[in-house]
Amino acid sequence: MSVNAMASESSDVLVEIRDLVIGIQRTRKDRLLIVESANFDIRRAEILGLVGESGSGKTMVCRSLIGTLKRRSASIFAGTIKFDGMDLAKLEERQWRSVRGSRIGYVPQSALTGANPVMTVGKQLGEAIRRNRKRKEKDVRRRVMELLELVHIRRPEVVYDQYPHQLSGGMRQRVMIAAAITQDPDIVVADEPTTGLDVTVQAEIMKLLKEIRSELKMSVILVSHDLALIDEVCDRLVVMHAGTCVEVGSVSAVARTPLHPYTIALNRSRIDISTPGAPLITIKGNPPAVGEWPAGCRFSDRCDFVQQDCTVGRNPVLVEVRPNHWSACLHAERLGGTSE
C-alpha cells in the first residue's frame, strides 16, 4: 500500500503532510535540501511524537507547520500540508496570520527566547488574546487568569504582574504553553519543550500536555530526541532520519515491533532500558550531514541489516507494512518477522 492510502479510515485526520520537501535556496541554481520526504498525518486530539537526531529535519517540519521557515531562510520546494481545506505549503505570509497562533499554536524550546523580557506575563498573554479581536480590558484579564489556572500556575494573580526572568524554567514554560493555547488552536506544536529542565519539571510539563490533549481536545506535536519520553507521552510517533520519515506508527506497535533498522538501533542505544554497566550498542558512524546523503537508503552505511539493493537508486519511501504502521525500509517485512 502506498503513502497515498495513508488516510484510509481517516475522518479524524486533521493534517495531511505529503511528500514535503524543505530546503534552502543558496543561489539561483543551488538548492540545499534539508527535508526530502516528510509523510505523515496528524490526527485529532492525539499526541504525536517527532523523534530523530539533530539535523534529521524535525525542527524544519515543525516550522513548516507554523509558517516560520522564512526566518531560517528556508522554504518549501514541493509537497502539500493539507489542513482544513487549505494547503499550508502554499500559504502567503498574509494568510498565515489567521492560522499561526489561532489555529496552530507553538511552544518554543526555550521560554527565555520565546517570551518578551520587558513585558509582564499578564501583558503578553493579554496581547495574544487581543490579537484577533477587540475585547474589553476586564474580559482579557479574566481570560488570562483562566489560562494561568489552566496550566496550573499557583498564585496567578502574582505571576500576572511578573516578568519572565522572575519565573523558574518550569513556570516560564507553563506560561508559554498558556500563550500557545490562548486562541483555542486545533494543534499545539511543542519543539523540545523540556530541554534543559529538570526531570521532575519535565514530568509536570508532560502531564500538562496530556491534559491539553484530553481535556481541550487539541492535537499536540511533541518534538524530542528522547525516545523514552516519546514512549511515555505520545499516542503515535514519527521517526525521522536524514531528512526523511523512516517509520510511522503507534507508540506501542513501534516499541513492540520496530520496522526500521534505525528505530531498532535507537532503541538499543537507550540507557533507560539497558542493564547498568553493560555495553550500549551504538549506531555506527555519524548521522549524514545535510546534503551529504548516500545513494539509496540514507541509513544504509550505518545499518546492520544492509543488503545490496539498499545502496542504490532513490531513497526508499514509507510503505504501510502492517495496518497503520509504515516503514521506509526495503526489508521491513523481514525485520518484523525476526523480532516476534
Partner: peptide, 29 residues
C-alpha cells in the same frame, strides 16, 4: 546506585526516580 534506585529511602529520591520517563511501556512489554 543499584540500591538507591531500587529502594529509595527519601521522598525526594522517590519523586526523582518516578519522573524518569519511558520505563513503564518497556516494563509492560
Amino acid at each position: 546506585t543499584v540500591e538507591v534506585f531500587d529502594n529509595p529511602q527519601q521522598e525526594y529520591t522517590k519523586q526523582l526516580i518516578a519522573s524518569i520517563p519511558g520505563r513503564e511501556l518497556h516494563k509492560a512489554l
